[in-house]
Design a protein around this nucleic acid. Structure first.
Length: 474
DNA sequence: ATGTGC
């Protein structure tokens, strides 16, 4: 019964390790010991964990014992290398020491091939945000990040890019009608091929995530995610879209894979940390070998989450195009939280993790957003091997969310936005423009990595209003 | 990032 159901926490208290044994124990108790008291169950399970070998052949408890024993055999303790592989840093003067420290730990992993630190780097879990890490046949869930497939997407329109007083309410209405933030979802979610993918039926964790993925498709979530109208200005006449130099009305979106990716990340991070034991300072860098079932499963699930994130953006832009009554001239998009199979300079396969970094292989197009009141950039990668074909994924935070809530007032943000002529729906002070680094300095630090094809100036922005904090609405 | 918890 619900009242006597054991929690993972209780099982850990009697000595159960993180991992499958906990789930097996819960299952066994529900199946064969349903009427028994909590005390009885806990005492029984404690005996199993203390001497699993005795219970291997037991009808109800054998599966728990198996997990406990196999786990012991599978668990290996990995050591860090004493020497770290050298790596390049871009814009070092603007990067906090915590991020550098995390990168240096990552460069000592036995599976590390190479790495680079981007100019917008700041501290994260395991690998810093703005960290690029190439490994040999291993994938690090925390090297991808919690929001798998977090990405940018921009559409450009052959429409006048004017934002006068009369047109503001029109753009605000389009944003309100065609995007959903926070917990909100569309009443009638659009279908998409990604929802029919076989992985949803083939991988256990995905079975339980499909319904919510269906409900949340086309939504943006929270945090630093946004959908905005603005002015794109193409400055490179030799661009691959055939766009003449000049100004365009543009829609820019930033979001990821919602609950789907978050739960995939959580599941496989736990699994990796369970199977791949590392010294405390590196524990979040636990990896999955790509030749194992878990590693292959994560790879498939990660790619599904990436495609789902992409689908969400495409639906946002599709809804906008319908409302605008125009087809976009071009769409530019890129993941910036993901892992790819790529090749090093000698042609060997490497697994490149970009955790808050823009792919910038030669000729690869991408978007590097600034802040609400500073421009973003449409960029073309230069294929710089020293940066592992990468660039920053934005300006980078200069102030934590918590600090922003302490230091910045709603009025300050309001007057800052007013002065810049930017109109905002939603957002909190923790996403105020002043919490970000100067994008121009960041771009200056990565001139060898990308060339600028165009700029984007936000005009009407929608973010997730966070009612717990001062809401900025102007 | 995430129904922000395990």
């Amino acid at each position: 019964m619900a009242t006597t159901k054991l929690t993972g926490k209780e099982l850990k208290q009697i000595g159960y390790p993180e991992g499958r044994a906990i789930g097996e124990a819960q299952k066994a108790m529900e199946a064969g010991y349903k009427g028994k008291s909590k005390k009885f169950k806990l005492e029984l399970l404690e005996k199993v964990v203390q001497n699993p070998a005795l219970y291997l052949k037991h009808d109800q408890l054998g599966s728990i014992a198996k997990c406990l024993i196999i786990k012991e055999e599978a668990e290996t303790v990995e050591q860090l290398n004493t020497k770290r592989i050298p790596y390049n840093t871009y814009g070092a003067e603007g990067i906090e020491p915590g991020a550098v420290n995390q990168m240096e730990i990552a460069m000592k992993l036995p599976v590390t091939h190479s790495g680079a630190l981007m100019a917008d780097a700041h501290q994260g879990y395991g690998l810093p945000i703005g960290g690029v890490l190439a490994t040999k046949n291993a994938v690090i869930p925390y090297g991808v990040g919690v929001d798998i497939g977090c990405r940018m997407c921009m559409t450009l329109y052959d429409m006048p890019a004017v934002f006068e007083y009369e047109s503001l309410s029109y753009y605000k209405k389009l944003l309100n009608d065609n995007s959903k933030f926070g917990n909100a979802v569309f009443k009638r979610p659009k279908g998409h091929d990604v929802l029919d993918r076989a992985e949803f039926g083939e991988i256990n964790i995905l079975k339980s995530l499909k319904d919510r993925a269906y409900a949340q498709i086309g939504t943006s979530g929270g945090g630093n995610h946004f959908v905005e109208f603005g002015v794109a200005e193409i400055v490179d006449a030799e661009n691959e879209y055939g766009l003449p130099r000049g100004k365009y009305l543009a829609v820019l979106s930033h979001s990821g894979s919602r609950g789907l990716g978050a739960n995939i990340a959580r599941h496989y991070t736990k699994l990796a940390m369970d199977k791949c034991r590392l010294p405390a300072e590196a524990k979040h860098l636990a990896w999955l070998d790509l030749d194992t079932e878990d590693g292959q499963e994560y790879w498939l699930a990660m790619n599904l989450a990436g495609d789902y994130a992409s689908a969400c953006h495409h639906q946002i832009h599709e809804r906008m195009a319908i409302s605008l009554g125009e087809q976009p001239l071009a769409m530019i998009e890129n993941h910036h939280n993901f892992a790819w199979k790529e090749q090093d300079a000698e042609g060997n396969e490497i697994i490149v993790h970009r955790k808050g970094a823009t792919p910038a292989g030669k000729g690869v197009m991408g978007i590097i957003p600034g802040s609400m009141t500073s421009p973003g950039f449409i960029v073309r990668g230069k294929g710089e091997h020293a940066a592992i074909n990468s660039a920053s994924h934005g300006a980078g935070r200069v102030m934590s969310r918590r600090k922003a809530k302490e230091m910045i007032t709603r009025d300050e943000v309001k007057s800052h936005l007013e002065h810049a002529g930017v109109h905002v729906i939603g957002s909190g002070v923790d996403e105020a423009p002043m919490v970000y680094k100067d994008i121009h300095q960041v771009m200056a630090a990565q001139q060898d990595l990308v060339e600028v094809v165009g700029t984007f100036t936000p005009k009407v922005v929608r973010m997730c209003g966070d009612e717990r904090f001062a809401k900025v609405d102007s």
